[in-house]
Structure formats: C-alpha cells, structure tokens
Amino acid sequence: MRKLRPLLACLALSGCHGRQVMLGAAGRDGSMFANLWLVFLIVTLVFYALVLIGLVWAILRRREGGEPATRTGLLVWVGVISVTLAGLSIASWLVDRNMNRAPFTGLTVEITGHQWWWDVRYTSADPSQTLRTSNQLHLPAGMPVRVILKSADVIHSFWIPNISGKQDLIPGRTNDIVITPEKVGLYRSQCAEYCGLEHAHMAFDVTVEPLADFEKWWAQGLLPARAPVTPLQKAGYAYVTTRECSTCHNIAGTPATGQVAPDLTHLASRLSLGAGTYPMNSGHLAAWVADPQSAKPGNKMPVIGLEPDQLNAVVSYLESLK
C-alpha cells in the first residue's frame, strides 16, 4: 500500500487543477518537471519494491548458506544502481538543459522582493511604457518571459509551481529566470524562502491570458488612476493624497508618490490584498485599512487610526481604483 501511495498522490494531483500545485503543468518547465518526476517516481518505486521483496524474502527464508551467490548479487546490485543513477543523472541534465532555454522575445519583468510583498515592473525600451504594479503578475500565454529577480532586504524565492521551478531573490545579486506559461488561467505564487515574520503571507496572483488581453491589461495599467467621482470618493482621495498614505504608496496621476510600499494605482483590479493575504473586496479592504496589523501582524504598514467616516471615504476611494 505504501508503495502505491505516491502513485495515487500523483493521480489525485493530475486530476485536480489547483492554483498552486507542482503537477499543474501550466507552463513549459512545469510540463518538463511533471514528465521527469514521473520517470524518477517509477524508477524509485521499482527500487523500493526490489528492496522490500529482498527484505521479505530474507525474513521468510528458513535456511542458511548461499554466500557465493550473494556475492555475485552484490556486484549485480552495485552495477544496476550505478547504471540507473547514471541514467537518471543524464535524464535530469538533459531536462535541465532544456529548461531556461526558451527564445527571448523581449518581454521582461523585474520583480523586487520586500518583507513581505512583491514590487513588479514591466520594463520596456520606452520608459513611458514601463508599468509598475505589485503583488500580481499578468503573463501572456505561450510567450517566454524573462523575470529579473532582486531583493530589497532579505532572501526571498520566486515560485509559480504550476508554471516553473524556483529562483531566489538575493540582496546584492540579480537573478533571472525565463518562464513560459502555456495554459490560460489563474495561478498563485508564494515566497518559498523563509524571509521572516510574515513569510507565510507573501504570495501573489498570476493571471495567464491570451496575448491580446495581456496587451490590453498593460495599456490600461499605464493609465493614471481614475479620478474620484462621488463626494465620498473625493473625501477619500483628499485623505489618501494628503495624509499618511501618500508617504509610502504611489498612485499614478495623483500627488501620492511614495515608493516604499505597494503601488495602489489600480489596486481594486487586483485579485487579492496584502500580498495574497485576503481576497480583494470592500470588507477586507476596510479591515485592512482599519487595522493592517490584525490580518498580517508585523507588516510594515502602521495602524493609522482613522475615524469611521475617514475610513469609509478612504475605502470608497481605493475601491474605485480599478
């Protein structure tokens, strides 16, 4: 039964379309991983079966003797292990060689890890086309994307299991990884290197969409934030752009130009809040603004202590930032 369990797990996983699973095979590397993993799984299961059969046979055997045959057996065993390991080495190397080898198409995303959120920049040769956002990634399906990875503080790790393996974000170094998402869908990425107090709440959403949708998203992302319309939104705008919020947060097209916290220009169009802590909706937005330390204790956003009407106004404005 125990032998079968990994196999069952594999079947169970391939049947379920989780947003953050290794066998999701939603990207080029993810598919190669799934294939190589299957090879390793079968080979290791065979060896586990051999060991168990040997053990059971040894326990059940009721007589002594047979040393010369056993000596030959040892040599054969060493030979079989060595050849198999050499085979696995080569298979692993061949797959590794093919990963990270996608042709470069010019799409580059620069991600900077912070305790505990992700600063995302879609760079372009034309600076006016450079898009800054945070805690989300939109990717065009079928197109290799070069992701440049940096860290502003400690080591983090970039990992979208459905699409590709990990690459660390290390302060003082610049890493990169080429990922090729293939299946349209929503995925989740989570920091995979322990990075301190709120490591558990450092995720982001990944939207893989057709190229046309992606280009539309990018173009919309470049637009400045929507102007407030209702009186409540206007009050919120006034608060956000003149008080504490603007020292850290940036909202393009407004006087809020802080650079040390997540960009809020199109906040309400994102799927989650607080780097994957909450789903995005007005209730959670209000809860977060009122007391960011309760959902994600230790994060760098202080409790401002807004009056109820201020809170309503701020949330109303933030909600309008589609």
């Binding site: 290794m22 190589l36 390793f40 290791t44 053990l55 696995l88 298979a91 692993s92 393996g165 990990k166």
Partner: peptide
C-alpha cells in the same frame, strides 16, 4: 529499512536540479 529507503529515494529525486527547483523548500 522500510522507512529509510523511502527517504533515500526521495533524496534521489531532490538531487535532480529540475525536480529540486520545484520540491525545494516545500
């Protein structure tokens, strides 16, 4: 023997770079 060999064999998986890049730190 029954237990350790499983750990040894998952170790074989972890030695492979493409597999480890997924399995690492999970």
């Amino acid at each position: 023997i029954v237990t350790f060999v499983i750990g040894g064999l998952t170790g074989v998986m972890l030695a492979s770079v493409p597999l480890d890049l997924q399995l690492h730190d999970t």
